[in-house]
Design a protein around this nucleic acid. Structure first.
Lengths: 208, 208
DNA sequence: CCATGCAGTTAACAACTGTTCTCTGTCATT
DNA sequence: AATGACAGAGAACAGTTGTTAACTGCATGG
């Protein structure tokens, strides 16, 4: 049965993961459209032809990486927004969450930021799809909150998209400051907080 | 003298521009880190070695493209912001300006969006440098306007950065809708206007 | 008018790429 | 215990790449 994880299936999954990890490491200094299949297999220590047992192409690998980088983030975002609390507290928690995530998975964040507008169509579409899901989820969560009571759905979508874009921009800023001094990361923390706060103030007076 | 433009210098400039144009066209379907020098010269119809007469590497070409794409935009932005007028009118003009610019130079816009977080460090830095200049210019223009009277310089920088980021995001949205139906472009126009308006509302109540 | 500088050419190099076919060893099924 | 499926290895392929060297022809400055 296919759901049985024998020694065979386990080993296959392990090399698959090794390929994805190696690719992610190589992608820190280049973009996906220049990533060679042989380059990846060489880094793993496996024959070039073994690549085809797992992915049709490097673009295919990229799509899998998008899933790995963003797929598990949806419940996290849901937990964050459904947690009751004052708006400024929510902003502070969001910024801290992003900071911790960038610290834990910098290569994933870099990959998403890089390939969001990158040269591989299928990967771009995969990312856009995930971001659309995030926007939709933020939109429905906003509907449950008092700040956007009486808003049109279009306006709520607009605000949700703005927040999602802002989260990505914040993550990218944290990434740039990742290897820098701690003072720089603090600056980014304050900056991102200010930006979000300004947006939430605009949201509070939207219906005037 | 070097400032004399004889037949010689003119022809050199022409092939240099041809190389940049060809590269820009090729970069619509890939990223700079996978752009080959031979690929470019082949598209122009020139020998591969001729490339070295103009650029040290493709990364060097990329830096020149950044200058071409963003360098001439500074006075445009200055004119836009120094034009007197009510704030909502300014927003509308800005969105229309971006829409027209994307329509006129889609390849330039795609290039900047793609390589801003792309795989080539020197190009990334060149773009960040230009964007920092834009942010600085917007900051000083904001200082002349009444909306940010009494603000700290840090807060003004924060707002300027938010606007610059927003302009890039808007340009990217227009680019995605560039070959789509006109209704889609209208939707983007309204969306971008709403986002900017929400930010400007937040700006109006920042000091409460 | 002639000598020089230099944009662009030609040829060749070693190294690299994606892809195909054939083969091997071993886990999982019967 | 025998058999088939299948992850991975190995070798070979036609193309491609960046870079070097030595060249050619012509516009330009003295």
């Amino acid at each position: 049965m296919s759901h049985t994880f024998g020694v065979r299936q386990a080993q296959k999954q392990r090399t698959r993961q090794a390929l994805m990890d190696a690719a992610l490491a190589l992608l820190e200094e280049q973009s996906l459209s220049s990533l060679g299949l042989r380059e990846v297999t060489r880094a793993v220590g496996v024959a070039p032809t073994a690549f085809y047992r797992h992915f049709r192409s490097t673009a295919d690998l990229g799509v899998a990486l998008v899933e790995e980088a963003l797929g598990s983030l949806h419940p996290v975002l849901g937990d964050l927004m459904s947690a009751v609390g004052d708006n400024d507290e929510l902003i502070q928690r969001a910024v801290e969450l992003i900071a911790r995530h960038v610290d834990a998975y910098p290569a994933h964040v870099r990959f998403i930021a890089r390939e969001r507008h990158g040269g591989v169509q299928s990967v771009r579409e995969a990312i856009q799809g995930q971001l659309a899901r995030f926007t939709e989820e933020v939109r429905t969560e906003l509907g449950k909150r008092p700040e956007t009571a009486g808003w049109s759905d279009d306006d709520r979508s607009m605000l949700a998209g703005l927040y999602v874009d802002q989260m990505l921009a914040t993550a990218s800023l944290f990434l740039e400051a990742h290897d820098g001094p701690e003072a720089e990361r603090d600056r980014v923390t304050r900056l991102a907080g200010s930006r979000m706060r300004l947006i939430s103030i605009g949201c509070r007076h939207w219906l005037d």
